[in-house]
Design a protein around this nucleic acid. Structure first.
Lengths: 316, 316
DNA sequence: GGTGTCGATAAGTAAAATCGATTGTATAAA
DNA sequence: TTTATACAATCGATTTTACTTATCGACACC
């Protein structure tokens, strides 16, 4: 049975009377278009186009076939229009809390397509620390939060969004700058920049390093930045290094990545990001729609967790 | 964009209000149906079914979606009905010559579906030797022939249908019976049964063996059968061996294959079968329709020619 | 607190569409 | 004739997608 796209290919050839140009119109290659049309012709048992004529013309039977194909394509278009207008009807207010090390890098990835797909939804995003999000969720002042997990918070459900590996961001004058890959025990707390207390990302970095050093205490730290941007600029202009999450690294230019970013050896330290919400708060389609929007906008390699190559750093 | 089959799955669930039963109706597994519907729901941005209700019911938006989906499916059905009636209109007389070692094994494979798909075509098949087919083609008393190729006959075009490997058919009491695979130089002309002169299959067998023996002459032969069936029964009841083409072997029971059939070592001797016709005789859709019917009814492994594993024996 | 029903998820496989490169073929020009 | 050229068909390889079996998890009913 001919598929929608095959019929579109046929309609395109009928319109342009040229296989190559029709292929271009359909954003496929000419061989693909040829083969798909041949397959239809095989199934239906007669030729739709007479290729000997220049330019190609539909056959007698082909004309009738194309006519009905056009009807079908119109109905298909109507179905898609209907779907778009229905999805636009999804409405309501949605209050979302996001932790500061995620907001600037995740939000731009999906707000655009989300606001187009669900124009009637009013999405209110707050940049908050994990502890604040949890409190507000319990008070029902937020519908959902995006944060590092697992938290095992009673009454709340976590739905994993993605697994975000950590990268190493290092100053040019640092000895580790010349290394291709970094190992956990290369790290020295005296040279490490950290976010201020209260950021879960700080805790994860500390935990990651102290675990390796076995003494459980993170030594003397020179400064504590308020955002990843601050750390980045500090290191660019002076010295030292820090850990950066993948979504941040994705926003850097190719040049800056070459200059400052190094990968960790396997297993790569990684954090789990989840949507967290009250169990009774699965607000109709809204949360689902949001969740799917976000997942589909993420870099594909971050969605699955590869236990062999990544080690998830606990939170808190 | 939702595909036709996805819409069928959705219509089925709407009809039966049950994913498992709907899957059965669509001849697919339940997980496949679930996943395909989820994919559509993701694309269109809202849920079509409320799975929490027992039994499942379409959502408010789902009802409208399904309504339009049904329209689309009806139009699709009309398109397929149209196609069937149009292909049934393909009409006319077609005279086809087929060589005797092919007719009994090829004809049953495609006449059934062909006569159903093209009820208005009158197909006249003649079993003839290669030389007769060629003569009649030139006289325009045949529209096409099926025979072993290549022939390089001036004025005629060959369109390869398939590549048919040869098998070894051997009596139980023969020493070669115990061998798993046969090599070309295992063959001994004194024990070989052959078709009577004039059959191109005989020529190919002779050529295959004499090529190996380098003297260019095929020695003393005891008997010459008129058909592959004759050779088969002679060998079953007495002794010796012969070569048999794959389409013949396909008709044998599993038991008889175990008992009498052996494969050749690579490269396996093979003949090319083609449809041959006068260049000016590409009679509208008819020859094409016939050609495609035959190809699609052949065992899939015979259609492609694998130069590494097969060696095509020349004709004549 | 089992137990059964039913849909979702996981992981692996098979089939299909697709692409870039090449080959054939019909027509026009030399 | 031969050569050029335009265009579709074919080839070989790759990626996507649909599909399968096996398993899980939520909910309802004893």
């Amino acid at each position: 049975m001919p598929s929608i796209s095959q019929l579109e290919y046929i309609a395109a050839v009928d319109k342009l009377r040229h296989f190559g140009k029709a292929a271009e119109l359909c954003h496929i290659s000419q061989p693909t278009l040829s083969m798909q049309i041949q397959k239809v012709e095989e199934e239906i048992g007669f030729l739709i186009f007479d290729r000997l004529k220049k330019p190609v013309v539909p056959t007698e039977k082909g004309i009738r076939f194309i006519e009905q194909a056009r009807v079908l394509l119109r109905e298909h278009q109507k179905l898609m229009d209907l779907s778009r207008s229905q999805s636009a009807q999804t409405s309501g207010e949605f209050r979302l809390g996001v932790i500061p090390t995620v907001t600037p890098y995740l939000l731009p990835l999906f707000i655009d397509q989300f606001s187009k797909k669900y124009p009637a939804v009013h999405l209110h995003v707050d940049e908050l620390k994990t502890s604040d999000i949890l409190a507000l969720l319990h008070e029902d002042k937020l519908d959902a939060g995006i944060m590092a997990t697992p938290l095992h918070e009673p009454g709340l459900t976590e739905k994993p969004l993605c697994y975000e590996p950590f990268y190493f961001y290092v100053a040019k004058n640092n000895p580790l700058h010349s290394r291709r890959r970094i190992r956990e025990d290369d790290l020295n707390g005296d040279e490490m920049w950290l976010l201020a207390d209260g950021h879960c990302f700080r805790n994860q970095v500390v935990r990651f390093c102290s675990l390796r050093r076995k003494d459980g205490v993170f030594p003397n730290v020179q400064f504590e930045g308020g955002s990843l941007e601050t750390l980045r600029n500090l290191i660019k202009k002076s010295q030292g290094y820090t850990l950066m999450p993948a979504l941040f690294v994705n926003t850097l230019s190719e040049a800056e990545r070459k200059e400052h970013i190094r990968e960790f050896e396997q297993p790569v330290p990684t954090r789990e990001l989840s949507v967290v919400y009250r169990r009774d708060q699965w607000k109709g389609d809204l949360l689902q729609a949001l969740f799917k929007s976000i997942v589909s906008s993420l870099p594909p390699n971050m969605i699955k967790h590869d236990t062999k190559r990544q080690s998830v750093i606990p939170v808190g």
